[in-house]
Nucleic acid binder design. Structure first.
Lengths: 147, 147
DNA sequence: CAGTTATTTATAATCATTCTAACATGATAT
DNA sequence: ATATCATGTTAGAATGATTATAAATAACTG
């Protein structure tokens, strides 16, 4: 059901394919991305790396994330009410569900997404590939329980 | 098909209902919102008002937009690749389609939306009300023609 | 190894948004 | 009306995430 999480090696291989150098910093950022089981921000990645790579600059984290995003290995998520950009490791077609209360982001995988986007596409004459991103806002279970 | 654009009077009435004062600045911001046939940013509103209300401060524009958003009369849209927050005047359930190339935002009204949300809701156990917002990224007709 | 290019780093700059404190305005009650 | 008080506005400063800059470093190529 859930598509497998990308492997470190495949990320690094695709960086190399694209003519980017596979530096220790980029390896570390990729490792941190994979270690974070969620939708990390640049700041979270940088903090996570402070222990093992105290010399890593924030600019390098931003640069690496930009490179990965350009290669479509990760996807940027800008969420209303959050001031940091989050990143999604999963680039398979899926929906990101975001809680309007607490900001929690979840991934939803469904095989019918394509068909439904096809209908939206027909109404808008936009070309919608599901890997381009779908964000739905709502209430997460925890927050809706509190009401 | 397309829900009617909100009227100036109804916006102001709802501000008043909520115990907010209907000041000349707030009227002007609402007028500018309605005059902009799209998804304006705070900066665009402020620029548009420079002619008629040269004393209007940017803080007032931001404050008014925040007030309208809290009352759910407009909706904030944070778009990947855009550094300004856009606002959507339409708070009826609909999909915002965003071009990944040029950032153009379109509103799509479709009865398919409910089906999409029902599906996503079942898989995520999030409570999804369609007016909470749905954003789909893709290519607008103009950009896809250029490829 | 030498030369070239990409990458990293620290730091400064940018810039949308928010905060602050003084002032103005509108509502309310005498 | 007038005084009072809460609310709104303003200019300007502060915040803070991200990006730009320029010097130093590391990786590839021949």
């Amino acid at each position: 059901m859930e598509p497998a999480k990308p492997q470190l090696n495949s990320l690094l291989a695709k960086l190399e394919e694209a003519g980017k150098r596979v530096t220790s910093q980029r390896i570390a950022v990729c490792e941190a991305l994979l270690a974070h089981n969620g939708h990390p921000t640049a700041a979270e990645i940088w903090q996570h790396l402070q222990g093992q790579h105290p010399a890593m600059s924030q600019a390098t984290v931003y640069n690496t994330l930009s490179a990965l995003e350009e290669l479509q290995l990760i996807r940027a998520l800008d969420i209303v009410g959050e001031n940091h950009t989050h990143y999604d490791l999963c680039v398979h077609p899926h929906v990101n569900v975001v809680c309007t209360r607490c900001g929690t982001i979840a991934d939803v995988h469904t095989d019918t997404l394509e068909a439904l986007l096809g209908l939206v596409s027909a109404r808008s004459s936009y070309q919608l590939a599901p890997q381009d991103g779908v964000i739905v806002y709502g209430l997460c279970p925890a927050c809706s329980a509190k009401l």
